[in-house]
């Protein structure tokens, strides 16, 4: 028995080493792709294949980044202030949209009368692009945090509802019947079977919508903002400073990737049970 266990332990260790090597290799590939991209970019600029005024090199962007950490030129904010302003807007909008949109989608997918009641309104509002709401939102909410967060809210809300709705509709009939034979009521079945079944789709919705929240941000910050990455980009464009524009873009990209990585971690943790291919 103990010999067998030792052998098992040994092959388990072997497997772990193997996995670690594999993970290291993948991490290397990930880093490599970014490095190659930056190297090509740098080379393109150094060999003057494009005008430096139009596209600054990564090294220059990095310098600008360091400067911008404390400089408020040209938009009146440091980079940190801009990042905080943008995060505040996008996360506020995102948070409220998830808080309302996910339960709404789940309930619509589960209770048919509720679906029939809510669906027409939802279907009518859905095709209106979030940016088209800007004039109306400005009239009612002005141009502050509330207004911009509302635009983000509208973007995220739609995909939260749709994905949760689709997710809970995929609940297996057998699972529902099983709960029925146990004597569970509709609500108990909803919480114990419907909601967990829908979770993978809900997370897909969140991942899609955190992306769109971030990309609508620039549009939302066109609302005469006083700070934010979109605003910084606008000002940079106004004064014709490509470094500021590209720095804003790079920062948006980096933050977007970070947020979606955080979401992936949360998903991996919540959906431990799910088979990943």
């Amino acid at each position: 028995m103990s010999v067998k266990q030792q052998e098992l332990e040994k092959s388990w260790q072997q497997y772990k080493t193997q996995q670690r090597k594999k993970n290291l290799y993948y991490a290397f590939l990930t880093v490599l792709s970014v490095v190659v991209f930056l190297a090509i970019w740098e080379a393109v600029v150094r060999f003057q294949l494009v005008n430096v005024r139009h596209l600054p090199a990564p090294t220059v962007i990095f310098q600008t980044f360091i400067e911008k950490l404390h400089s408020t030129v040209p938009d009146g904010n440091t980079l940190g202030q801009n990042v905080i302003a943008s995060l505040q807007v996008s996360l506020t909008g995102f948070f409220f949209a998830v808080l309302i949109g996910v339960p709404l989608g789940l309930l619509m997918g589960w209770f048919e009368p509720f679906d029939s009641f809510v669906r027409p309104l939802f279907e009518l509002l859905r095709p209106v692009p979030p940016i088209a709401w800007i004039p109306v939102v400005v009239v009612f909410l002005g141009i502050g945090l509330k207004a911009k967060a509302t635009i983000i809210f509208l973007t995220v809300f739609v995909s939260c509802v749709i994905n949760s709705y689709a997710g809970i509709k995929l609940t297996s009939r057998t699972h529902i019947n099983l709960m029925k034979t146990f004597g569970a009521g509709t609500w108990e079945t909803f919480f114990k079977v419907g909601v967990p079944s829908a979770m993978p789709m809900v997370f897909t919705g969140l991942r899609v919508s955190i992306g769109s929240a971030w990309s609508t941000l620039v549009a939302a910050e066109m609302l005469a903002a006083k700070a934010g990455l979109g605003y910084m980009l606008q000002v940079g464009r106004g004064v014709g400073d490509a470094r500021i524009v590209v720095l804003a873009m790079v920062t948006i990209a980096a933050l977007g990737a970070t947020l979606s990585a955080l979401l992936n971690t949360l998903e991996a943790h919540t959906l431990k049970w799910k088979e990943m291919r």
């Binding site: 297996s172 057998t174 699972h175 019947n177 099983l178 034979t181 146990f182 079977v193 967990p196 079944s197 979770m199 959906l271 049970w273 799910k274 088979e275």
Partner: peptide
Amino acid sequence: SFVFQEPSIFPW
């Protein structure tokens, strides 16, 4: 209690 023909284990 019912054992179904289809797989009915809760994956979560």
